[in-house]
Design a binder for these strands. Structure first.
Lengths: 369, 369
DNA sequence: TTGTAAGCGTTATCAA
DNA sequence: TTGATAACGCTTACAA
């Protein structure tokens, strides 16, 4: 493109070559109206010729804008194995790059401070705005950012969510439609394989699950509601526990597809058939979901689109639009594949009548035909 | 921590409060030796009290360092679904944060220029260094960064790799041990389900595959070497093609675990059993690999550790160490699980003698017992 | 050991 | 329509 990349030219140099002042050149390049069309063209041409590009740091210092938004990784062990996360990133990057914005990823940093990573971004003014995910019911990050006056948008709500921007899936609906689907397949003992209770998405999905059950006239059996360490191994163990109950579930609503994978393995290792003896429904619809065996029935949310939208919202908030305007809840959709099936196919309850939550009167160990 | 977060204090303000010059305060805070211990303590205490943190932009402008390294996402469609990528990021972040470095993620940007994203980072001096991945045999990014004088490190070598830092798995070895493993299980018709030829890792792994076959006295059957679009769907189709050959393979070496997932689905949909009729070996050992059905035998490389090491190397190069010192090739390890098994178990060749590459004399369609 | 002052490369204010 | 000049907040020669 330009002659010599190693010999950078700055605004002053460019102005000198053109016989103009830095001011004029700067304005010509930034599309100000008070520059003659002729001058502008001349400047633009020369800039291109000499490969001039403004120094981002200098521009940031003067303008007070960093043209950067931040994302803080959660704890370092296994949280972000989930492909949904890469999709979220890719989606954000798509729109950010278009607007010449950078996305910086940092981690929480050492030390117990869960706010550490956020403090750094805020205090050192490294970013113009922040994206949060995996919100908790009472999320201290939200309080912190609100008080610091840092623009942000969260992927997920919280119970303290007031005047901030967020994008969220309708988690309650997600839990509801998954459970409804299973009820429609005549399942009566349906388990909920969840994440820790503090997470807002877990809370809401569980609520949807409970609502569906109640509407069907069924009680909630606490034994069927589990909380995992939110990892695949955790879900494997949790699912195994469920399947070894005196009255095991014939269906499991899983908090996400990764958890569903763990559950599938658990079902198999108990000698049972997925989609027959035990139905499984996931959440997210990550790429591997369609390729699993059996292909996973799941509740889909488009994380790449979510990433794009989150970035757009944040950029708008940074630009000064009131944050509370941007509060979106997206409807998830059920993607039916093959990991669920009618309850009567299950060998767990050959008589076809699993006991209700409160009346365990038909003991029958798991894994028997 | 500090009194009023909305009312930032800068170096000048802090100096004023302390009755010192900016210089002294700056040096005290940056650990210079020519500041009296007493002054330093006083400064540090006051700084903490007032919640002073240096403005990152200003520091960057003066120092000429951005304290940021860059990573450019490949094309936007499905490349980074792979969990290995999230691991790489997490690993890099771990060490970067410790040193107060940021990681910025950008995309290639619109327009056909494959160097677009890199140009932006380099020209606008947004980063001190760059990490590349998925190198190609003749990688123009390497040439570009070399010429631009931008420090970088690549995850993967290239054929033009001279004086730059890289970390790579021993890909040839990886292809070799996977193939050896299958040969040891008496397989004779072993396919290679690869990525496009331009990729260096594909090139080397294929070489390892070929070497193992040759050492075993077997010819390479071009029909058994496929190139996919490097996505799961692509590998599904490619694997299906392989299985429908007149003389289908009894084993498939896959370019990565995601491809292996596609292959597994293909095997099943042809009515065959994974690990019996057709053995599958993956690469990477992503988290879901152990949870798949059957658990995937794969060649493991620790991408999180790789991420950490890449960051360390890059930081060293940025600090001025000669790049060519940092050229590491890591040995991969075979993780045996259940997706591979002895050739005699395959119903594809009941007589136990699959034809060699050049002499297809025993036609026997796939999927027959 | 501490302070003065000159940058770093922009953008923005105010005259001309 | 254009041009001096002053910020922006920090680091670092160079003096004291």
């Amino acid at each position: 493109m330009h002659s010599n990349p190693s010999q950078r030219i700055d605004l002053k140099g460019l102005a000198q070559v053109l016989g103009l002042s830095m001011t004029t050149v700067s304005r010509a390049l930034n599309g100000y109206s008070d520059v003659s069309e002729k001058t502008r063209r001349r400047v633009e041409k020369q800039a291109r010729l000499l490969g001039y590009t403004p120094n981002a740091q200098a521009r940031r210092l003067t303008s007070g804008m960093t043209e950067t938004i931040g994302f803080v990784l959660g704890d370092v062990s296994g949280y972000y194995d989930d492909p949904y996360f890469a999709q979220l990133l890719a989606g954000m990057s798509e729109v950010l790059t278009r607007l010449n914005y950078d996305l910086v990823i940092s981690t929480r940093g050492a030390g117990g401070d869960p706010l550490g990573g956020y403090r750094r971004l805020v205090d050192e003014r490294r970013v113009d705005g922040i994206v949060l995910d995996r919100t908790r019911r009472d999320d201290e990050r939200i309080a912190f950012l609100l008080e610091a006056g840092m623009p942000f948008v969260s992927f997920g709500r919280s119970e303290v969510s007031g005047d901030h921007a967020f994008l969220d899936a309708d988690c309650e609906e997600a839990g509801y439609i998954a459970t409804r689907r299973l009820l429609g397949l005549s399942h009566r003992r349906i388990a909920f394989l969840g994440a820790p209770r503090g997470y807002m998405f877990n809370h809401l999905r569980l609520r949807g699950y409970e609502r569906a059950l109640n509407e069907a006239g069924l009680d909630i059996d606490p034994q069927l509601v589990t909380v995992t360490a939110y990892e695949e191994e955790g879900s494997f163990h949790a699912a195994t526990g469920l399947l070894r109950l005196d009255h095991p579930p014939t269906a499991i609503v899983c908090i996400d597809d990764m958890a569903a994978m763990g559950a599938i393995v658990a079902v198999r290792s108990e000698g049972l058939e997925v989609g027959e003896d035990v139905s499984i429904i996931g959440y997210n619809d990550i790429a591997p979901a369609a390729l699993m065996d059996p292909p996973l029935t799941t509740v889909r949310i488009d994380s790449r689109a979510a990433g794009r939208r989150l970035a757009e919202m944040l950029l708008a908030v940074i630009a000064g639009r009131p944050a509370s305007v941007f509060q979106e809840v997206w409807a998830p959709t059920l993607v039916v594949r093959s990991s669920d099936g009618p309850a009567f196919a299950s060998r767990l309850y050959p008589t076809g009548t699993p006991p209700l939550a409160t009346t365990p009167d038909q003991p029958l160990p798991a894994g028997e035909a």
